[in-house]
Computed example of a mutant assay.
Amino acid sequence: MDLVQLGIAASLFLASHFILSHPLRASLVRSLGAEAFLVVYSLIALVSFSWLMLCYGRVPAGVPLWDGHAPLPWAVASVLTVIALGLFLPSLYRNPALAAAKTAGLDTVRPQGVFLITRHPMMFAIALWALSHILIAPTGRGFVFMGTMIALAVGGAHLQDRKKKALDGKNWRPWMSRTPFWPDVRQFGQLGAIWGLALGLWVLITWLHIPTVGEPAGVWILHHAHVG
């Protein structure tokens, strides 16, 4: 029953986000005003996500489908997390896919860096982070919660393209033609030194996983196993 409630909470979280972000956004902004809409949107997102987290916490972890701390899932999850950080860090700078970003003049811009990999680096960073957690915690609640994050990220990226084309197709369509939607692994070298920063941040975050979550993660799993 708890898992069913988690599924309902996940569905409502996704539905409210997608509906308010796209089909109803324009009409609500016209009727409420941009600032009031942002307040309403933020409150609904906070309440729905809080309920999702509450339901997640109520579901017993259960028996995992495989050993997430085994060498193969651990290694793959670690690599995916580093890649996610490598995509996320540069996505914070001059990212035209962000809601408040200006697209004027984008039709003449040649993509560089992370945007040669994907035009939605932040969204795919979230999706890869969630996928890595499914690999190391393959439980029912993990599949529902992290699957929700993947659907939010990939579905949100697709809807961002639709919204940007509707608002400013003159600039967004040329940008789409120059940048891939799905991450192009052949362009990973474009990130250069960012990979070093991502790796260092991964080591720090996985170390913080021990005092905050109570479980070792990343390279610290090896350290924990050696000490144990």
Rank of each mutant, 00 (worst) to 15 (best):
T179I: 06
L167S: 11
W182K: 02
P64G: 02
M123L: 14
W74G: 05
I210C: 07
G7C: 15
V185R: 07
T108P: 03
A70C: 11
F124W: 10
F18A: 11
T179E: 02
L199A: 15
Q160C: 12
H209A: 15
H226N: 10
A137D: 11
W74Q: 10
A36V: 15
T206G: 03
W195I: 04
G57V: 14
S31M: 10
K164C: 01
D67W: 12
F143V: 09
A166V: 08
H223Y: 14
A97R: 04
L204M: 12
G68N: 11
T81S: 13
Q190Y: 00
W66F: 15
L199I: 15
L128I: 07
I126Y: 01
W175N: 02
A26F: 09
P71T: 04
K170I: 10
L14P: 14
A9K: 04
F37L: 13
S177E: 13
K165A: 13
L54M: 12
L208H: 04
L85S: 01
G189C: 09
G113M: 03
R25G: 07
A99Q: 11
D107R: 12
W175F: 07
L6F: 06
V29E: 15
A166C: 07
S21P: 08
I210V: 13
L20A: 13
T103E: 10
A34N: 09
H209S: 13
W182P: 01
H223G: 03
F124Q: 01
G142Q: 09
A101H: 02
L65G: 08
H120T: 00
L28S: 11
I194C: 11
L28M: 15
W51G: 08
A70L: 06
I83A: 00
L20V: 07
V29K: 15
R186E: 05
S177M: 14
A137I: 13
M123R: 01
S78K: 09
S16R: 02
L43W: 13
R119P: 00
I136W: 06
V114L: 00
Q160N: 14
T118C: 05
L222F: 10
F145Q: 05
G228H: 06
R25I: 12
V219S: 05
L28V: 12
P174F: 01
L6E: 05
K164Q: 03
L12P: 04
N95C: 04
F49S: 09
G155S: 10
W220N: 03
P96M: 10
H224V: 05
V114N: 00
M1W: 08
L3E: 07
G228W: 02
V39S: 07
L72W: 13
I117Q: 00
L135S: 04
A130I: 06
V203P: 00
R110G: 09
D107N: 09
T139D: 03
S132Q: 04
V76M: 12
I136G: 01
G68C: 12
T81C: 05
W195E: 08
S11D: 05
M122P: 02
C55D: 08
L98K: 14
L204G: 02
W129R: 00
F88E: 00
V227P: 06
L52R: 01
I8Y: 14
V40Q: 07
V39Q: 07
L52V: 10
V154W: 04
F124Y: 02
R30F: 06
G156L: 03
G86A: 14
A97S: 15
F49D: 03
H226C: 06
P111Q: 02
L222E: 10
L106P: 00
I134H: 04
D161W: 04
G105S: 12
S27D: 13
